[in-house]
Amino acid sequence: MAEIKKIKNREIILKIEEEYHVGVARRAAAEHARLMGFEEVRTTLIITAVSELARNILAHAGKGTVTFRGISTGEKRGLEIIFADRGPGLEDTARVFRDGYSTKDSLGIGLSGAKRMMDELEIESEPGKGTTIRVRKWL
């Protein structure tokens, strides 16, 4: 796969520390998706995935950040969103993709649902250090 480059001046970082920050992240997602040219259905998919993953940060780590950036491989452009926290992390990242897997009752669709809504989802996590989830959707 081609190298993924950041598109200049297309990056914002938002903190997720309070519940209303989830709403702020959703609105930022909507704005980024529309600005980049995603049509309605895929914009809704992106906003919903952001809502789920930002909520996960609050539920599992208490706080963290969401970064939005425009990306390009030269051939295609897309939106990359990174959810980072310094929470408890995960022992087994493969397990979280199973539908119905949940460590907290507040969790609904989990990462498998978020992955279906986006084109790509990568997770890096270390127990005690935190979790970084990277999702991408291509135009």
């Binding site: 259905v41 998919l45 789920e52 609904g108 669709i109 279906r116 809504m117």
Partner: peptide, 13 residues
């Protein structure tokens, strides 16, 4: 709305 119906299905909700 159509996009929400699609999203709910993709989420598996």
């Amino acid at each position: 709305q159509p996009d929400i119906a699609i999203t709910l299905q993709e989420m598996g909700l």
